[in-house]
């Protein structure tokens, strides 16, 4: 069974990429389950999706220390997911800082040592720069699909399946951009 967590901030498209991943897994004959919390997502809160696929999936929630891959679309959100890591997990983070409300109003500080702390304490951390790619793709909204491209490098599904599923969930007018974003994200992982 594979366990993937997508984490981000409301509006970053976390739920959409989890749907794409599920669709690819279903196509490849796996049982799939997902759990999401999005009651407050539209108001700029944290969003998290658990996706699990395998021969038979019972719990829709990934247990603590049970994630194979954690994809974080924002730096700080990664720090909320550490309890899902085990020593074999891979943590992929977009190097972007979105200030939460307490930081915006000056009541708290955004920690400055996240990257160095993760590098020192969790070797399987990959921090990616997506800024250039998004500039080239022409829309910041494709960040979620860039990160999905990163993930795709670790999963044994073929490109055609990914592209088909992306086209199922992305608006036709934005499809070309998203396929490009996916491929460039894939190239981000060595």
């Amino acid at each position: 069974m594979k366990n993937v967590i997508f984490a981000g901030v409301g509006g970053q498209g976390v739920i959409l990429v989890s749907k794409i991943l599920m669709d690819v897994a279903l196509k490849n004959g796996f049982d799939v389950k997902e759990s999401e919390v999005h009651g407050m997502a539209q108001r700029g809160g944290s969003v998290e999706c658990h996706v699990r696929f395998g021969t038979e999936v019972s719990s829709p929630l990934i247990p603590k220390a049970g994630a194979d891959y954690i994809l974080c679309l924002e730096l700080l959100e990664a720090m909320r997911k550490l309890e899902y890591l085990n020593k074999n997990s891979v943590l992929i983070i977009n190097r972007e800082q979105i200030n939460p409300a307490p930081v915006e109003i000056g009541a708290m500080e955004y920690p400055s040592d996240i990257e160095s702390w993760l590098k020192n304490n969790f070797p399987n951390t990959i921090i990616v720069d997506t800024g250039e790619i998004l500039k080239e793709v022409g829309t910041k909204r494709a960040l979620n699909v860039v990160m999905l491209g990163c993930l795709s490098r670790f999963l044994d599904f073929n490109i055609k399946d990914w592209e088909e599923s992306i086209s199922k969930f992305v608006k036709e007018s934005a499809l070309e951009q998203n396929i490009k974003a996916f491929k460039m994200g894939r190239e981000l992982i060595a």
Binding site: G44, G45, L76, M79, V103, M108, E109, P111, F122
Partner: peptide
């Protein structure tokens, strides 16, 4: 009991509460 491979982070993680847009 779950064993985390990471030590506890000593800094403060600011919460991200929902807010009015």
């Amino acid at each position: 009991n779950i064993e985390s491979p990471l030590p506890a982070y000593q800094g403060v993680i600011p919460p991200r509460p929902p807010k009015l847009c």
